[in-house]
Amino acid sequence: MANANPRSVDPLVVGKVIGDVLDMFVPVVEFTVDYGSKKIANGVEITPSSAAQKPSVHINGSPASPNLYTLIMVDPDAPSPSEPTFREWLHWVVTDIPEGSDASKGREVAEYIGPSPPTGIHRYVFALFRQREAMQVAQKPPESRGNFRTRQFAAANGLGLPVAALYFNSQKQSATNKKR
Rank of each mutant, 00 (worst) to 15 (best):
A110G: 03
V93N: 03
V57H: 14
D77K: 10
P84W: 13
R132S: 09
Q53D: 11
A64I: 00
V125P: 04
S65G: 03
R123G: 05
G100S: 05
D102P: 08
A127Q: 08
I97H: 12
R107H: 08
A127M: 12
I97P: 07
V74I: 12
F126S: 01
S104M: 08
P81K: 07
V57F: 13
H122G: 05
P55A: 08
S56T: 12
A51K: 01
V93F: 09
P76I: 15
A110L: 11
A103M: 08
E88S: 14
E111Q: 14
T70I: 13
S65M: 01
P115H: 04
A110S: 06
T70P: 14
A64L: 04
A127K: 13
I59S: 02
S101F: 11
S116H: 09
T119V: 10
Q53N: 13
P117H: 10
W89L: 05
A51R: 01
A127V: 15
K105F: 04
S50Q: 15
A127N: 11
A138Y: 12
P66D: 00
L128V: 02
S80I: 03
W89I: 00
I121H: 09
A52E: 13
F86G: 09
E108F: 04
F126A: 02
P117G: 15
V74C: 10
E133K: 06
Y69Q: 04
A134D: 04
I121Q: 07
T85L: 10
T119G: 12
H91L: 15
S80V: 07
A138V: 11
S116K: 13
A52Y: 04
S50F: 00
H122P: 03
T119D: 13
F129E: 00
S62A: 09
S116A: 15
A78P: 07
W89D: 00
V109Q: 02
P98W: 00
P76Y: 13
F86C: 07
V125D: 15
H91D: 13
P117T: 09
G120F: 06
S101L: 01
S101V: 04
E111V: 15
A52M: 13
V57Q: 15
F86Y: 12
E99T: 03
A64C: 02
G114P: 04
R87M: 11
S116L: 06
L90D: 03
F126H: 05
V94W: 08
A78N: 04
E108K: 15
Y112C: 08
G120M: 09
E83C: 07
G114I: 15
A64Y: 01
D77R: 08
L90P: 13
P66V: 04
G100L: 07
E111G: 12
I121D: 11
S62M: 02
S82I: 12
I59H: 02
I121T: 11
A103R: 07
S50T: 07
E133S: 09
S101W: 02
S104C: 10
S80M: 10
G100Y: 10
Q131M: 14
P115Y: 06
A52P: 09
V94H: 12
S104P: 06
R107K: 15
A103H: 14
K105C: 01
Y124S: 02
T119K: 11
Y112W: 13
Q131E: 12
A103P: 01
E99R: 03
A78F: 09
S50C: 06
P98D: 00
A78W: 14
I113G: 14
R130P: 02
G61L: 00
A103I: 07
V125R: 10
E88V: 14
